[in-house]
Amino acid sequence: MASTSEIKKGVVIRDPQGLWVVNEFQHINPGKGAAFVRTRIKNLQSGKTLETTFKTSETIELVEVEHRKMQYLYHDATGHTFMDQGTYEQATMSDQDVGADGKYLRDGMELNVTTYEGQPIALELPRKMVFKVTESMDATGGNTVSGGNMTKEVTVEGGIKVHVPLFIKQGENIIVNTENGEYVERA
């Protein structure tokens, strides 16, 4: 049995209803309650996605997965296709399984992919990636959800929208945190 501190993106949990890959996780301390780990998990057999929350003191059963170095080849109607750089085998992950990570994929890029029984189940993107700002309007006011006025939204390569400080201009390279889609700093 494993501790909840081992919960990460791409680990596979076994419970009475089968095998579940962790797509997202977050440690939460509500203060008024115990510490928890909130997860979004996906059933490897049925594809069903659930939100489930573990108390940090619980134990869970983790299943062995592999981490393979792969190259991203292309995207088509079946999803995103990768090639194992050791065996040259190809494997495809559906758009749904790739989820929000898909927008960071660039043809030819190398990355680690978590696989279970040969099938890719999660991407291990570089935590920080550099993108060129392709579209930036001069900010005249705030447009963030909560009324902030210190950032503006720009578009970077691949059509990704990122909130950046006002001083960032079109054509500049910026570093984006792929875990949360946030601006880190100028590249």
């Binding site: 509500p30 309650g33 115990a34 659930l50 573990f54 619980e58 869970i60």
Partner: peptide, 16 residues
């Protein structure tokens, strides 16, 4: 689809 363990209090289960 939440886990329930013996040490969970009512509040723990609520929070899940």
């Amino acid at each position: 689809h939440q886990t329930v363990v013996d040490t969970d209090t009512w509040d723990d289960l609520f929070f899940k």
